[in-house]
Structure formats: C-alpha cells, structure tokens
Amino acid sequence: MKRRSFLKNIVVGTATLATVMLPYGVSRLLAPGIKIPKRNYLRPPGALKNDAEFVVACIGCGLCGEVCPPRCIRFHGRDGGAKVNTPYIDAAEKGCILCSKCIDVCPTNALTTTPIEKVDMGIAEIDRSACYPWVDQGICGACVSICPLGDKAISFKMWNQYRPYVRYGCVGCGLCVEVCPHPSKPIWIVDRSQEDVAKHAV
C-alpha cells in the first residue's frame, strides 16, 4: 500500500511539474530566435552564397589559407560540426584585403571567380550609438581610410566630415572591423539580407 501511494505521488508530482512548466516551454518554442552578434564567421571572397552549398563544395584542403597574404583565413575546428575544416575570416581579428588569390587557388567551385565589386561576404554596419564620431567623442575615420573600395563602400556624411556611413558598394571584407579602434567594435559585418544598412544609411 505504501509503495502504491509512493508511485502515485511520483506520477502526480511529475504531472504537476509538467503542467507548471508547460507555458514556459511553449513560450520558449514560440519565442523569436535570439540574435548573437558576437564573432561572425565570414566566408572568403567568392564563396558560394548558400553556406550549405559551400560546405558541400569545400574539401578542406586549406589552400585558400596557404595563399592568403594577410593570413586572415582560418579554419573551423571540431566545434564547427559539419563545417569542420572549412575556411572562415574573423574580421575582428584580421580582415580580407580582396587580393582574390584564394579564388584562383581553390580547386573546387567553393570559391568561384568573382570580380571584386561583386564579392559578397556581407556588408558593414555601423552602430551609431558607439562609434566615436557619431557620439561626438572625437574624430576617427579609420574605417573610411582603410577601405579598399573607397567611396563606393563607405564614406563620410556630407554635413559632418567625420561620421562614416556604409554604402551598398560595400562587399564586407572586414578591414574596417579590423582597424576600428573602439573596443566594442561598433562597425561589424552583417548578412546583406539583414537589410539594416538602408535603415542606417539615410
């Protein structure tokens, strides 16, 4: 009799707990995905647009890294899952100089021949609540002066010489991220599909 009541208590307890936790679980399931802005992995220039296709095409030979003059191309480790040994560029550490040597050397179609202006590694986005000139904490312009594409990609606001803004010519090479002196990196490369640039560029 005692055992029966014990089992009954367990069943009732579990059921109560499940009922109480159910709203939390449902809300977690329905909640929109939380954006994690830290450390985005850019693919080298000319990479296939669809990342799954890129992982399929890449054989992980490391040739792109071996020809990269600034040594910005690094490789996913075990943490990358199926992406293991595929190349990435961590713009905060080192940006791409768009020399397109990796495109030439890639044996597969993972990196396909692309003119520099058509490269799409993403697009830079400036956080105007942190960038030094935008919060009136001095003049900077590091991102504008380093940009290999010049005026097509990033330039200063006309009415304030030192406030940078990104234009659609930006290919997302990440050099601006590399040189940005602000510790929190208010300039960052985001997916072009995120379309935040238009909002910021006006």
Binding site: V55, C58, G60, R71, F75, A82
Partner: peptide
C-alpha cells in the same frame, strides 16, 4: 553534405594540421 572522409584520412589530417600548427598557432 560535407566531405567527412577527410576527417579519418591521415594524409589529409596531417597536411592541414601541420599548416594549422605552424601558420595558425596550434594543432586542431
């Protein structure tokens, strides 16, 4: 959808791991 055979193929492993160790600062 990823070239998984490379993960258990010693010459491929050795080739890239030596590169990682020398140029990228550590074995994987």
């Amino acid at each position: 959808g990823s070239v998984m055979v490379a993960a258990v193929y010693p010459p491929a492993i050795l080739g890239r791991e030596i590169y990682y160790a020398i140029a990228l600062g550590g074995f994987g």
